[in-house]
Structure formats: structure tokens, C-alpha cells
Design a protein around this nucleic acid. Structure first.
Length: 281
DNA sequence: TTCCAGGCTGCCT
DNA sequence: AGGCAGCCTGGA
């Protein structure tokens, strides 16, 4: 580390750094010795967990506290979960996993590029975009601002291996850069209206919008349904039924998992991905 | 080689 | 409203 002062110990009870970073919310953090490094905004941050504390540079204390949701009242959140054996198992397995607070543009852009991709690919795309279009931060790069991706355009982005996602990312970047959508203002909208706004962006449908609502706008009730969580819901809650529509699954999720459904979803998702050995990459 | 992956979109019925 | 193919690319 540079001379930012020696790390301080930030209290982090009921928190698990590794599980939080490996639960498919963010795709650019990497292990650094016994800790992790990643860029938050325009800061390169190193975090290391030591028991129920986090070692961080003093100047990153507040940033880390906010980004990792250390203010979340976990006991209260867990108390809202439905009680059934599968939910209980996921909750025990994921103890300490927090929903993070990401910067909206980075979050929406990353999930636009995640369509039909496996995690290593999403990480690769994030890294390539940062290296080509992001501002340097020490020896790493910030996520590119919308203006840079809009200027690059679809053709250039295709060279960064984005495939059909290039058009969507370039289009979304253009809308944000031109002020056609106000990602900051969305913060103040009710969740349903915020979702409609986000879906105006190319490449953003209900799933990506819900990811952004959950991971960037603190809407803990937002419940992203991807192919994985569909498998989980069918396997755990509709085992013997066939012909259950996606719509029916979403209706079930909305009523069953309660006001922190997004948290519950993340736990079911992470538990399944880490324990269902088949197919997971 | 062939197949498909953490989704969206447009076009069908 | 619900179903379905196509979209790029890389890895199994």
C-alpha cells in the first residue's frame, strides 16, 4: 500500500467479504494476498477481512462501509425471510453475504454486457472495457464513463468482444451521455416507475432492471429472475408440477419472499451456484 | 465439431 | 399474453 496511513479496523459483524464479492454482484474484484482489491468509483480500494472487522485505508472507511452495505440490519432482514428448509439452508450457507451498493451506471452497463454470458466472460469484458476506455487508477482502471463508451460506438465495442451486446451498451451509454435518461433522478422514483425508466435503455429488460434496482438503488424487494433462479424456484417450490410459466414463478416470488425478496433471491442463487456441482462454471 | 451460456427484442400465434 | 428464433463470442 502507499502511504495512506496504516489500515484501520472497520467493524463488520455478520459480514463475509469473500462470499459478497463472489456472489455475482460485481465482476472486477480480485484476490490480493489475504485481501481483495477493486476499484470503487475512482478509488483503488484494498479490503481484508479479519474476523468481524475489515482492514481498510482510513480514507476508504466510509466508502467501504457504504459500498458493502455494512449498515444493513441483518437480523431484521433475515427475520423477513419465509421459513422453509431450503430458505433456511441458503440463509445458513450465505451468512454474512451482503447486497452491495453499486454506482448505477457501472451496474447497469455491466449487466447489459452480462446477457447470455458466464461469469468468467463477464469479468473479461469488464476488464477489457476498463483497460480500453476507463481512467487509470494507480495500476488499474475505473469503469468507463458513459461518454467514453458512447464515443467508441458499436463498431469499436464489437472489437472488445461484446458481440450483440455492443449495440446495446453503446446505445445505453449514448442515452445517458445525452441526458435522455437520468440515472441519478431514478433514485427518487418509486420502484415500479424506476423499473420502467431503466427498461427504456437498450439491452435492459425486466431481469437487468431488477439487478440494477437491487444492486445499485437499494430496492431490497427487487427480485431478478434469470435462468438460474428459475431453475432454483422450479426445483425447490414446484418440484412436482410441470408447465409452470415464468410469469407464475414471478408472481410466486413476489408474494412469497417478502419485503427483502432480493436478499432472499441472492441467497438462494448463491447457495445453488456453489452447491449444485453440475453445470455451474 | 457442435452446442449452449446469468437476456433482450421483434415477430409470430 | 405467451412462445420462439436470432443475436456474437468463447469454452467445453
Amino acid at each position: 500500500m502507499k502511504s495512506d496511513g496504516s489500515p484501520i479496523a472497520l467493524p463488520a459483524p455478520h459480514f463475509d467479504l469473500r462470499q459478497t464479492l463472489e456472489s455475482g454482484q460485481v465482476f472486477h474484484w480480485h484476490a490480493d494476498g489475504d485481501g481483495w482489491k477493486g476499484v470503487i468509483g475512482s478509488e483503488l480500494v484494498r479490503v481484508e477481512q479479519l474476523g468481524e472487522t475489515l482492514l481498510v485505508s482510513p480514507k476508504h472507511e466510509k466508502l467501504v462501509h457504504t459500498t458493502f452495505g455494512l449498515d444493513h440490519p441483518m437480523a431484521e432482514i433475515l427475520a423477513t425471510f419465509p421459513r422453509d428448509p431450503d430458505m433456511d439452508a441458503a440463509t445458513a450457507f450465505c451468512r454474512g453475504l451482503r447486497i452491495m451498493r453499486q454506482e448505477p451506471w457501472e451496474c447497469v452497463a455491466t449487466f447489459i454486457t452480462s446477457a447470455m454470458k458466464q461469469v468468467p466472460h463477464i469479468r473479461q469484458i469488464s476488464l477489457t472495457l476498463r483497460q480500453l476506455y476507463g481512467e487509470p487508477v494507480e495500476n488499474q482502471f475505473a469503469y468507463p464513463i458513459p461518454e467514453n463508451l458512447a464515443r467508441a460506438g458499436e463498431t469499436e465495442l464489437r472489437k472488445a468482444k461484446l458481440g450483440f451486446r455492443a449495440k446495446n451498451l453503446a446505445g445505453a451509454a449514448r442515452m445517458v451521455a445525452d441526458g435522455k435518461i437520468d440515472l441519478h433522478g431514478i433514485r427518487f422514483l418509486p420502484t415500479d416507475e424506476a423499473r420502467v425508466e431503466l427498461c427504456r435503455l437498450p439491452g435492459v429488460g425486466e431481469k437487468v432492471a431488477n439487478c440494477v434496482l437491487l444492486f445499485a438503488y437499494e430496492r431490497l424487494e427487487a427480485f431478478p429472475v434469470d435462468v438460474w433462479i428459475e431453475r432454483v424456484l422450479r426445483e425447490l417450490y414446484f418440484k412436482r408440477k410441470r408447465n409452470v410459466t415464468s410469469r407464475r414463478l414471478r408472481e410466486f416470488a413476489a408474494s412469497y419472499f417478502g419485503p427483502c425478496a432480493g436478499y432472499a433471491q441472492q441467497y438462494l442463487f448463491h447457495h445453488a451456484r456453489k452447491t449444485w456441482k453440475t453445470r455451474a462454471k
